[in-house]
Design a protein around this nucleic acid. Structure first.
Lengths: 225, 225
DNA sequence: CGATTATTTGAAATCGCTCAAGTTGGGTGG
DNA sequence: CCACCCAACTTGAGCGATTTCAAATAATCG
């Protein structure tokens, strides 16, 4: 039976957004019992689009995926970043309410609705997962509604750094994708990174690999401390 | 068993944010089977605070509630508006991740976690409800991250108007609360309303009651059409 | 190595914010 | 019932953070 226990563990293993290099971050299957189909995507591959028939449940095994929505004039807002262990694609509706695109090489396992309906344990984890994602969305609403550009970028780096076990943090997204996630323009994101570099708070090895010598000083800039 | 069916009905009855006057919008119990405790709050009463022990599940029966988060320096972001039929207060964690405050006179029914764990039908509705709230949060992320001030206000009015059966729409929130919901300042919200009034797109009877003669023209301003 | 794309930087414009008065309106008590 | 009061709202002026527009530079991939 679905237990509404105080268990955040289902959302703890947020790792591979951050791995310096996306070498096989394997992840034990979320849904062990099912003969699930496995799929692989390359960077920038579309997984599904807003409005698509919502068929099954995707379980992240490796890589990073973004969920985004578009306005008719082309403005884009990235609403979620997904890493191994995360689930997505499940709606109560008939259709997807946002689009999903692979940021890196991505492996997902695909489960049918029926498989989910059969497994009580799965339902519980699914539910807790939804709650955790909701918490993340609320935090993101605070970021989008109330934080300055620098605070947004610092929050983003802090999140990556916290979930990284490596010293070098790989940015899984282009500047444009980061901008669309943080509700900024690409130029503002770039300027914020430059400013942090100038201040010695981040070091860039390559465009997409950064080092954070002192995470504490980044955290002070997030607005949440 | 928890059915992951394509059923958005659990989230359809968004009504009383909009009733011109909050006269007893009664709502059939979401959870019929439980001997649930009922509670009443007045406008601006706090229901719980971020960090409070997360005990039970609240079911909205009457009125409107806002969920919000604060940054340490006092900046506030309203992350959700709740109306009869909505559920809140349920976390996977031990603690509330945001605060809840009554906007109007509010009646809620309170259920224990145990009661929820006993009812399969309830779990399903709870789950679908969480999905629907998530969709709302994603839409709100688009608003906060990508829409102009006028587009935000128009989106807000459109939402109220769509869920209103009356011609007169009662704003259940002060300008400050609207501002904190839309990620703006109180002055910007006020100026946007004035601009809409000047253009004849809304008429104000009182500060907190407006009329929308032509909803179509408001919709054109939301950025989503 | 060259072409192409992504990123950075600069300068100017703009939208929304801040600060500072006014104004309105609803409620209260005389 | 009216005058007053207080809080909520509106309006104005100036400022500033972020965007926009335009190049320049750097990185990536054949």
């Amino acid at each position: 039976m679905l237990q509404l226990t105080r268990d955040a563990s289902a959302y703890q293993h947020r790792d591979s957004l951050t791995k310096a290099y996306p070498d096989a971050v394997s992840h034990e299957p979320f849904i062990a019992s099912t003969p699930a189909r496995s799929l692989k995507y390359g960077p920038h591959d579309s997984i599904f689009l807003e409005g698509d028939q919502a068929g099954h449940i995707y379980e992240m095994v490796e890589g990073a995926v973004m969920l985004y929505k578009l306005l008719p004039d082309g403005r884009r807002q990235v609403v979620e970043l997904l890493v191994p262990g995360d689930l997505f694609g499940l709606t109560c509706d008939e259709f997807q309410d946002c689009s999903a695109e692979a940021l890196t090489v991505v492996r997902v396992r695909i489960h049918t609705r029926e498989a989910v309906e059969r497994s009580a344990e799965l339902q519980q984890r699914l539910f807790c997962h939804a709650r955790a994602q909701m918490q993340a969305l609320r935090d993101h609403a605070v970021l989008l509604g109330r934080k300055s550009a620098m605070e947004r970028v610092a929050s983003f780096i802090e999140r990556l750094a916290l979930s990284s076990d490596d010293d070098a943090i790989r940015l899984p997204m282009t500047r444009q994708e980061i901008a669309d996630y943080l509700g900024l323009t690409i130029e503002t994101v770039s300027r914020s990174f430059s400013e942090l570099r100038r201040r010695g708070l981040v070091a860039c090895e390559r465009q997409d690999v950064i080092r954070v010598p002192d995470l504490e000083r980044i955290s002070e800039l997030t607005g949440a401390h």
